[in-house]
Deep mutational scan, measured.
Amino acid sequence: MDPFVVLVLCLSCLLLLSIWRQSSGRGKLPPGPTPLPVIGNILQIDIKDVSKSLTNLSKIYGPVFTLYFGLERMVVLHGYEVVKEALIDLGEEFSGRGHFPLAERANRGFGIVFSNGKRWKEIRRFSLMTLRNFGMGKRSIEDRVQEEARCLVEELRKTKASPCDPTFILGCAPCNVICSIIFQKRFDYKDQQFLNLMEKLNENIRIVSTPWIQICNNFPTIIDYFPGTHNKLLKNLAFMESDILEKVKEHQESMDINNPRDFIDCFLIKMEKEKQNQQSEFTIENLVITAADLLGAGTETTSTTLRYALLLLLKHPEVTAKVQEEIERVIGRNRSPCMQDRGHMPYTDAVVHEVQRYIDLIPTSLPHAVTCDVKFRNYLIPKGTTILTSLTSVLHDNKEFPNPEMFDPRHFLDEGGNFKKSNYFMPFSAGKRICVGEGLARMELFLFLTFILQNFNLKSLIDPKDLDTTPVVNGFASVPPFYQLCFIPV
C-alpha cells in the first residue's frame, strides 16, 4: 500500500478516535471549553503556568470542569470545598494515580508514587510505618536530621561569610537525610558517588519541569519514536535504579534480621516474612523503585522550600529577627534545636507554614484518578478519569488567608500570638494520596531553619526591599529566582 495512503488512514483513525473520546459521556461530565481534535484544549493552557490557566477557566466554568490534554480527559478541581469533598470525603474513590506514560515506562507500575490498587496500598502502608518507626538502627529519624543539620551548619561556616548561592548546600542536606534513612549512610558533600546522585536528581527535576515532558505524557507515541530530553530522564532513572540495586545486594549479604539498620533492611525482612506468599507485593523490584521514589520526592521539594525560605527571610528581616528572638528565648545557644521545641515556638512554626503556603511549591499536585465511576456534584466521572487538583486555589484562598499574595506569618497566628491551624494548609496535597514523607519534610524544615538561624545572621547583597521573591514557574514547580547571601556567624 502507498505510504501516503497509510499515513492518511492513520491520521484519520487518530482523528476519529479523538472525536469519539471527547464526545463520549460529555453530557455527564462537568462543563469545559470545547476541545480541538487530537490536541484537545492545549492551546487554551499556558504550559509554563498551568495553575494560572486553571484559575482563569474556573471563573468561566465553575469549581469543577473538564479539560482535554491531547486525548487525555481530565476533570479539574478548583477551590477548597471541591478539593476537600473529593480528596477527603470521597478519598477512596479519588485515590488513584493519574496516567503518566513516562513514569509507567520507567517504574513499570512498581513503587509508591505511580503505583495503584493493592500494590500501592500495601507499599504505602509499609513505608509510612517504617518512616514513623523511630527505632531503626537504634537511631531515631530526628537524630538523623539533627546530625545532618549540624553538618549543614559546618558547611555554611566554610563560606566564611562571603557571598554564596545556597542551592547546592541546601540540596545536599535533605538528600543526605533520605540516604541515611534508606542506606544507613550519609555522605560527605564532596563524595563523588553522592555528587553523581545529586546531579541525576537535579537533572531529572529540570527535565520533568519542561513543556516537552508534558507533551510526551499527552502524546506517548513520542516516547519511542522521537529524540528528546525524555530519553535522558529514562537513562538517569535507570542509572539510579541500578545503583540502588547494588546497595540492596550489599544489604542482603550483611543484614541482621533482628537489628534492621535502615529502610532497605526493613523491606528485606518483610520480604523474608512473605516469601511463601506468591501474591506478595514485597519484591526486589518494588524495593528498588520505592527507594528511588523516596529519593526523588524527598530531596528537591525540601531543598527548594529551604532555598525559598531563606530568600523570604532576607526580604523580611523583621520576621527573621522575631524567629531568632524566639530561638534565643526557648533554645538558647548551648544546645541543639529539637522537635519538642516546636510546641513552644508558635512564631517560628507560623513562619515555616507561611513559607510553604506562600511559595505554593507544587501548584497542581500530582494528578489523581478516580478508581470507579463516581457521581460528584451531579456529574458522572468515569472510572480512570484523571483528576487535576489546584492546590493554589486552596493555599491562596483570600477568605482563609487575607492578602494571600503577601508573605505574612500572621496567617497562622491567632490574636494572642498562638499558632493557628488551618484546614486550607495543603502543600502536601490531601486525602489518601497525601505525601508519604510529610512528617519528615516538616521535621527537616523546622530543624534546618532553626539550626541555621541559631548559628548565623543572614545578610543580603542588596537592599532587602529590592529582592525579587516572585516565583519562577516552570510548569511543574514554583522555584525561587537566583540569589546570593552571606551567612554571618553569630
Results as ranks from 00 to 15, higher is better:
residue 4 F to E: 04
residue 5 V to W: 10
residue 8 V to E: 04
residue 9 L to R: 06
residue 10 C to R: 00
residue 23 S to M: 11
residue 23 S to K: 14
residue 24 S to G: 12
residue 33 P to N: 01
residue 34 T to G: 06
residue 35 P to Q: 05
residue 40 G to W: 00
residue 42 I to Y: 15
residue 43 L to Q: 07
residue 45 I to D: 03
residue 45 I to W: 04
residue 46 D to A: 07
residue 48 K to P: 05
residue 48 K to E: 10
residue 51 S to G: 14
residue 54 L to E: 02
residue 55 T to S: 10
residue 60 I to M: 10
residue 61 Y to G: 01
residue 62 G to A: 00
residue 63 P to Y: 00
residue 63 P to M: 04
residue 63 P to S: 11
residue 63 P to G: 09
residue 66 T to V: 07
residue 66 T to H: 03
residue 67 L to K: 00
residue 67 L to G: 01
residue 68 Y to C: 08
residue 71 L to Q: 15
residue 71 L to G: 14
residue 73 R to M: 06
residue 73 R to S: 07
residue 77 L to T: 01
residue 77 L to H: 00
residue 82 V to Y: 08
residue 87 L to K: 02
residue 88 I to E: 14
residue 89 D to P: 04
residue 90 L to E: 07
residue 90 L to I: 09
residue 95 S to V: 06
residue 95 S to P: 03
residue 96 G to Y: 09
residue 102 L to A: 05
residue 105 R to P: 04
residue 106 A to P: 06
residue 111 G to D: 03
residue 113 V to I: 12
residue 113 V to C: 07
residue 114 F to C: 07
residue 114 F to P: 03
residue 114 F to H: 13
residue 115 S to R: 04
residue 117 G to K: 06
residue 119 R to L: 07
residue 121 K to L: 10
residue 122 E to P: 04
residue 123 I to R: 01
residue 124 R to K: 15
residue 124 R to N: 03
residue 128 L to A: 12
residue 131 L to M: 09
residue 132 R to N: 15
residue 132 R to L: 11
residue 132 R to E: 14
residue 133 N to L: 08
residue 138 K to T: 14
residue 138 K to H: 12
residue 139 R to W: 15
residue 141 I to N: 10
residue 143 D to G: 09
residue 143 D to F: 08
residue 150 R to L: 09
residue 150 R to E: 13
residue 154 E to Y: 08
residue 154 E to Q: 13
residue 159 T to I: 11
residue 161 A to M: 13
residue 161 A to R: 10
residue 162 S to Q: 14
residue 162 S to C: 14
residue 164 C to H: 09
residue 165 D to W: 01
residue 165 D to S: 05
residue 165 D to F: 02
residue 165 D to Y: 02
residue 166 P to N: 03
residue 168 F to Q: 12
residue 171 G to D: 09
residue 172 C to H: 09
residue 174 P to K: 04
residue 176 N to S: 04
residue 177 V to C: 07
residue 178 I to L: 12
residue 180 S to A: 11
residue 181 I to Y: 11
residue 182 I to P: 01
residue 182 I to S: 03
residue 183 F to S: 06
residue 185 K to V: 07
residue 187 F to Y: 13
residue 188 D to Q: 11
residue 189 Y to Q: 05
residue 192 Q to K: 15
residue 193 Q to H: 15
residue 195 L to G: 12
residue 198 M to A: 08
residue 198 M to E: 05
residue 200 K to S: 09
residue 202 N to Q: 11
residue 202 N to P: 04
residue 202 N to T: 14
residue 203 E to H: 05
residue 203 E to A: 09
residue 203 E to S: 08
residue 204 N to L: 06
residue 211 P to V: 11
residue 213 I to H: 09
residue 213 I to M: 13
residue 214 Q to I: 11
residue 215 I to F: 14
residue 215 I to T: 07
residue 216 C to G: 05
residue 222 I to D: 03
residue 223 I to K: 06
residue 226 F to Y: 06
residue 227 P to I: 07
residue 229 T to R: 12
residue 231 N to M: 10
residue 232 K to D: 08
residue 232 K to A: 09
residue 233 L to T: 05
residue 234 L to H: 06
residue 235 K to L: 08
residue 237 L to R: 13
residue 239 F to Y: 12
residue 241 E to H: 12
residue 241 E to Q: 15
residue 242 S to R: 15
residue 242 S to A: 15
residue 243 D to G: 13
residue 245 L to F: 09
residue 245 L to A: 14
residue 248 V to P: 01
residue 249 K to E: 08
residue 250 E to K: 11
residue 255 M to T: 05
residue 255 M to H: 02
residue 257 I to A: 15
residue 259 N to L: 07
residue 264 I to S: 02
residue 265 D to R: 01
residue 266 C to A: 14
residue 267 F to N: 01
residue 267 F to S: 02
residue 268 L to W: 03
residue 269 I to L: 12
residue 270 K to T: 10
residue 272 E to N: 10
residue 273 K to F: 08
residue 279 Q to L: 14
residue 280 S to P: 06
residue 281 E to D: 08
residue 282 F to K: 02
residue 283 T to Y: 03
residue 284 I to R: 09
residue 285 E to I: 07
residue 286 N to T: 07
residue 287 L to I: 06
residue 288 V to E: 00
residue 290 T to Y: 03
residue 290 T to V: 10
residue 291 A to T: 13
residue 293 D to V: 03
residue 293 D to K: 02
residue 294 L to H: 02
residue 296 G to M: 11
residue 302 T to D: 01
residue 303 S to L: 05
residue 303 S to H: 07
residue 304 T to F: 12
residue 304 T to S: 14
residue 305 T to A: 06
residue 309 A to M: 12
residue 309 A to I: 06
residue 309 A to W: 01
residue 312 L to C: 07
residue 312 L to Q: 05
residue 313 L to Y: 00
residue 314 L to T: 11
residue 315 K to R: 11
residue 316 H to E: 06
residue 316 H to S: 07
residue 319 V to S: 06
residue 319 V to L: 04
residue 321 A to W: 10
residue 322 K to M: 12
residue 324 Q to D: 05
residue 324 Q to C: 11
residue 324 Q to V: 14
residue 325 E to K: 10
residue 326 E to N: 01
residue 328 E to H: 12
residue 329 R to C: 13
residue 331 I to P: 03
residue 333 R to Q: 09
residue 333 R to L: 10
residue 337 P to D: 01
residue 337 P to R: 01
residue 338 C to R: 09
residue 339 M to N: 11
residue 340 Q to D: 12
residue 340 Q to M: 04
residue 342 R to H: 11
residue 344 H to I: 05
residue 346 P to M: 05
residue 349 D to Y: 07
residue 349 D to P: 00
residue 351 V to H: 01
residue 352 V to A: 07
residue 352 V to S: 05
residue 353 H to A: 10
residue 355 V to M: 09
residue 355 V to W: 01
residue 356 Q to N: 06
residue 361 L to H: 05
residue 362 I to S: 07
residue 363 P to Y: 02
residue 365 S to A: 12
residue 372 C to I: 07
residue 378 N to S: 12
residue 381 I to H: 00
residue 381 I to L: 10
residue 383 K to C: 06
residue 384 G to F: 03
residue 384 G to K: 06
residue 384 G to W: 04
residue 385 T to E: 04
residue 386 T to M: 13
residue 386 T to V: 11
residue 387 I to M: 03
residue 388 L to H: 01
residue 389 T to S: 07
residue 392 T to P: 03
residue 392 T to Q: 07
residue 395 L to S: 04
residue 399 K to F: 12
residue 401 F to H: 01
residue 402 P to K: 11
residue 404 P to R: 04
residue 404 P to K: 00
residue 406 M to Q: 14
residue 409 P to N: 02
residue 411 H to G: 01
residue 412 F to V: 00
residue 413 L to I: 06
residue 414 D to G: 08
residue 415 E to I: 09
residue 420 K to W: 05
residue 420 K to L: 09
residue 423 N to P: 10
residue 426 M to I: 15
residue 431 G to C: 02
residue 431 G to W: 01
residue 431 G to H: 02
residue 431 G to E: 02
residue 433 R to S: 03
residue 434 I to E: 14
residue 435 C to H: 02
residue 438 E to M: 09
residue 440 L to A: 04
residue 441 A to V: 08
residue 442 R to M: 10
residue 442 R to W: 02
residue 449 L to M: 13
residue 449 L to N: 01
residue 450 T to L: 04
residue 450 T to E: 03
residue 451 F to A: 13
residue 453 L to V: 08
residue 456 F to P: 02
residue 456 F to A: 00
residue 458 L to H: 03
residue 461 L to Q: 11
residue 466 D to Y: 09
residue 468 D to P: 14
residue 469 T to A: 13
residue 473 V to L: 10
residue 477 A to G: 12
residue 477 A to F: 11
residue 483 Y to L: 05
residue 486 C to S: 11
residue 486 C to G: 07
residue 487 F to G: 02
residue 490 V to S: 05
